[in-house]
Each structure stands twice: as structure tokens, then as C-alpha cells.
Design a protein around this nucleic acid. Structure first.
Length: 262
DNA sequence: TTTACTGTTAGGAC
DNA sequence: TGTCCTAACAGTAA
């Protein structure tokens, strides 16, 4: 379920296990029909090089070689990254593997095939080309207020728009609104500035807390909405009951008691 | 067997 | 012109 914190956890896994190792081969998985992956020639540029650094912007992750290209990995709807030792066996649905000398390998698992890999020359140019807004953990108070508070649609839809704010997806937008006490369907531009500021704080707190657990949901506090995404569940914040509806076409859970509109 | 689904984007509506 | 919304993408899991 990759949003910003899950991508950050994947980036950390690459940092810990896949940097400064010489790449022996880059392999496609068994079934990669309909997938957006680089062609053979582009991938062969990585053979013999090493990843020396990683970056992340929103849900986009980049592994870079010293003087050459970067490999952008987007996990899509269901992608995940693992770094395996030589004696470990691949999971199902591995679409792509970077094999290092010595047997360690970085695997990209993606059952639904919505993930994407692109060979990128310049990360900042690429972020601009994709039209991504500021990263949700980097954006300042004023920019957040401008970009989210200036949207005439539902506040949840504003949080989800990667062109405005990069990194927040369905799960953590719900969690942030739940914590900030704001209804997902509230018109963003109608919200008072102190509530927008509170939302900014809630987004940052939520994302950082999830990153601190390496995106292991079972380690998140019991009162979080993530453990209550079910119609009729007890709210963890007030005495209310969790409700479900569609906002901007996305399944949305919220507490109609303590979350308020404008 | 049927239904819902975490993300992104093209195209249509307003 | 801009902003917003919906449907579609493919395949799994419940």
C-alpha cells in the first residue's frame, strides 16, 4: 500500500542493503506484459556500476549511480521492494530484479503491474516533468496553506493531488483528516486558516509516525483510523462510529462526530 | 462468482 | 482557460 511512508521504508531498505555493490545483471520477471519498464539497452547501462545514493520525492524513489543515470522506481498500487541474500528465494510476482555480484539482489514485486521503472538522467528535471508538487514532508506552512487552502474542491481531493502535494495517498489522507478533526468532503477553500495549519501538522505527524515504524501498521497506536477502516467501528478519538463514503471517487473512512466541515 | 482495491492519468464536464 | 471528476488500467484477494 505504497504512499510516502511506504516508499520511504523501501528507500531505507535499499540504503541498508543495496548501495555500493556492483551490479552484475538487471533482469525482467516472468510476466511483464503491459508494464512500463525501460528497454534492455537502457537497463544495461547499470551493469558494472553501483548504486551510491537514493532519493525520494512524494511516492517516487530514485537509486543513483555515481556519475550516470538514476533508476526511478514507482511502486504503483501494490508494488514492494525487497533486498535478498543469495540464499533467499524470490516471492511470487517478481517483475524486475537487480542482481549484484555475490548473489545479493534487489527485487521489485508487483502483483497488479501498476508499478513503473524509468531510467532518469536528472532527478530534479524528472520531478518537474511529472508535474509533482512539493514533497509532503518538505512543504512549509505558507505553501501548504496556499496549495491546499486554495482548492475549491473537497479537502481530501486536494491532499491526494500529487501536483499540489506529493506523497499523500488514500490511507494517510484519511488518517490526517481524522486526526485534524476535518471532514474529508469539506470544501478546502472554506476552511479557516488555523484548521488548515492543523491539517498540515497532522499530515506531517502522521507520515513521520508511519515512517518511524518502517510502515509496519501493527506498530501504530490503537486509536488510529488505520485499525478501524470498517463501517461501524468505534472511533478511537471520540465516542462516535466510523462511517464510509466515496470522496473524489475514493473509498473514505471518517468519524462524523469529531470531524467537522467548515 | 462477484466485488473492491492502496495510484496515476487521459478525457470529459462544468 | 482552469479545475474537478470519472473511468480505466490488470490482477489479486476476500
Amino acid at each position: 500500500m505504497p504512499e510516502l511512508p511506504e516508499v520511504e521504508a523501501a528507500r531505507c531498505r535499499i540504503d541498508r542493503g543495496a548501495l555500493h555493490r556492483t551490479i552484475g545483471a538487471v533482469r525482467y520477471g516472468d510476466d511483464i506484459t503491459h508494464m512500463d519498464l525501460p528497454d534492455r539497452d537502457a537497463l544495461d547501462r547499470f551493469v558494472g556500476t553501483q548504486f551510491s545514493m537514493t532519493r525520494r520525492h512524494g511516492k517516487f524513489m530514485f537509486a543513483g549511480t555515481k556519475d550516470g543515470p538514476w533508476m526511478m522506481i514507482h511502486l504503483g498500487m501494490a508494488g514492494s521492494i525487497r533486498v535478498l541474500d543469495a540464499d533467499e528465494v524470490d516471492a511470487d510476482f517478481i517483475r524486475f530484479t537487480v542482481a549484484f555480484e555475490g548473489g545479493t539482489r534487489l527485487t521489485f514485486r508487483d502483483p497488479r503491474k501498476f508499478g513503473e521503472i524509468v531510467v532518469v538522467e536528472d532527478v530534479d528535471d524528472y520531478i518537474a516533468e511529472r508535474g509533482l508538487g512539493p514533497d509532503a514532508l518538505e512543504i512549509g506552512d505558507n505553501a501548504f496553506a496556499e496549495v491546499i487552502g486554495g482548492t475549491r474542491g473537497a479537502v481530501k481531493s486536494a491532499l491526494l493531488a500529487q501536483s499540489k502535494l506529493a506523497g499523500v495517498g488514500n490511507l494517510w489522507s484519511d488518517e490526517s483528516l481524522y486526526r485534524a478533526g476535518i471532514l474529508p468532503g469539506a470544501t478546502a477553500s472554506d476552511l479557516a486558516s488555523d484548521r488548515i495549519a492543523r491539517l498540515h501538522g497532522a499530515v506531517g505527524d502522521t507520515l513521520r509516525a508511519v515512517i518511524d515504524t518502517c510502515a509496519t501498521y501493527s506498530k501504530l497506536p490503537d486509536d488510529w483510523l488505520i485499525h478501524r477502516r470498517e463501517e461501524g467501528a468505534a472511533c478511537g478519538i471520540c465516542a462516535g462510529t466510523i462511517a464510509k463514503k466515496k470522496v473524489g471517487g475514493r473509498t473514505t473512512y471518517y468519524c462524523p462526530d469529531h470531524q467537522k466541515g467548515a
